[in-house]
Design a protein around this nucleic acid. Sequence first.
DNA 1: GAACCTTATGCAAGCGGTTGCAAAATGAAC
DNA 2: GTTCATTTTGCAACCGCTTGCATAAGGTTC
Lengths: 332, 332
Amino acid sequence: MAVTLKEVAELAGVSRSAVSRTFTDGASVSDKTRRKVEKAAAKLGYSPNILARGLTTRRTKLIGLVSDNFHNPIFLEVFDQFTRKLQDCGLRPLLVNLSDETDPENSVRLLRQYSVDGVVVASSTLPPEFSKAFKDAGIPVVNSFGRYSATPDVHVVGIDNVECGRIAARELMKRGYKCLAFLGGPETATSTQDRYSGFSSELSAHPSIEVSYTFSGAYTFNAGRTEMQRLLENGAPAEAYFCADDVLSIGALSAVSDAGLKVPEDIGIIGLNDMEIAGWENINLTTIRQPIQQIINSSVELIVSMLDDPVRFPEARLFPCMVIERGTLRAP
Amino acid sequence: MAVTLKEVAELAGVSRSAVSRTFTDGASVSDKTRRKVEKAAAKLGYSPNILARGLTTRRTKLIGLVSDNFHNPIFLEVFDQFTRKLQDCGLRPLLVNLSDETDPENSVRLLRQYSVDGVVVASSTLPPEFSKAFKDAGIPVVNSFGRYSATPDVHVVGIDNVECGRIAARELMKRGYKCLAFLGGPETATSTQDRYSGFSSELSAHPSIEVSYTFSGAYTFNAGRTEMQRLLENGAPAEAYFCADDVLSIGALSAVSDAGLKVPEDIGIIGLNDMEIAGWENINLTTIRQPIQQIINSSVELIVSMLDDPVRFPEARLFPCMVIERGTLRAP
DNA sequence: GAACCTTATGCAAGCGGTTGCAAAATGAAC
DNA sequence: GTTCATTTTGCAACCGCTTGCATAAGGTTC
């Protein structure tokens, strides 16, 4: 079915090299033969087989896009942006869903079998070691939404989760809340760990503020809701909560309103991410925006630059977050 | 970096064919050489390059997953399921984001360049001709969530959108609503067209019921909200609305409650999809469930079967939908 | 038009595999 | 120990494309 180089060469009356060259830019072909070849190619509907080409060039233009966050609506935005940006760069995402497995071994083997040019690990929950495995296998990798380190093993682009914790703490204090609480995701998620540590360290300088900490089992609506229900049943709740994720926040909101309490009058909530849904008028969540687009653009640019320079020294690129004020915190 | 067949062969002291054969099942190798080869392979960490293999076998195990629905949260569930199911079958999804372009030409060329074994077009908005283009290019294709046809050009698996329209109409009548309305997605989306036609044809048998129709620009929250706001401003609203999508419904809900009206007391709303968010307690949308998992499993099974039998006669697989009762319709 | 320098072209080998075919090894039957 | 049928094995060609190298074709200059 597919038409090959050889057929084009025959039709154009030139050698196979000639047609190969007209399809590789920077190669030396005269205008005359180029025209002949292009005409023949157009007639036959030829376009080169990238995979066969990759065999010799060692470039497949394939990028492994691996993630374990297939349940957080924000990741639809993430996939949308990643695919678009990669496509703009002439690259193709090979999607890998980690679902339950978190051992890098299989993914590494798999993506090697497909000779991907690089890998982006898009996850806020996987440990840095996961991404490291690709590097060790000689595959360029960037970890997006991953944990910041001053001395990263691999490229990391994302936000400063510790700083986000601080921002949340400051924002809540600014609004005069005296009794705060942190409602995190899974304790194993690096993002929760860091947000926790920023939040608590910022507050440690303010001993007059009362604060408590709790974690939910996952970054999901139900986890947030259940945890908030539990908190409400167990006596006096805090005045305001920093929920370390928007979905979690929305779950918490729903528990609060079911308990007959009003937001922000009785309880304040601030989330993190600013996913599209947070802006829906019937949710209207005050939250800390994570600059997804910048993170993704930067990630892709980084991976692109690694294609030419695979041993590039690992760097961390962090983008600032900002509070998006909506309706779930009282006025200062 | 990558270790090749040849190196394994040398280490094991056998021919290249021998090691190739131990990695192709069904090939004839003695236990003795197989063991030698496996040992050498393990030692070197060898696994075959699927792309190089594909050159001769014409099988890459790559499946193009193309979609233009990157803004509807239900599609995160769709991508999750698709990737998992494909992975279970030993296939790899090459994701294509149609974003704005809807001309199949580019996608066809692209996916051919990557020698994908098949394509699944996951979209409720693209016309059947889109998928047809792959078939014409000789690539096995199934259109998931696409438009049903009694004589389909390509395999279609999804729901009977016309029937869904009927179900909605019946459900609303059952609950005693006398003044109904249809709030669709874009008029160009095949799913909206069909839901519309089912809804209206069911009602045509009940002339006593008043009914009106309107369409929004997209399957998005804002589109639903804006459209509903417009309706509420323009005089007396209907008693109940069939919004042809959950996101649309949630947008409509938000407009209704902003207008100071209560759901379901003042206005009833029924959606379609039953995405996860519809079940969130603070949304609590009564809706028609689309059996996503079945659709996806069936789609993948179909594409798998086409790998062995590419000219398989096109069929349509439709799965029944059911009303999921929550809180946005009054009791019968 | 000869001499020289570029620029184009084709050949052939190779990328990492698979596979038809013929030869070698094994096993069964006598 | 033969003979013959059945596996196993290796050779070599091929999948579709690129690329180093040697040669051919064009261009300049005098």
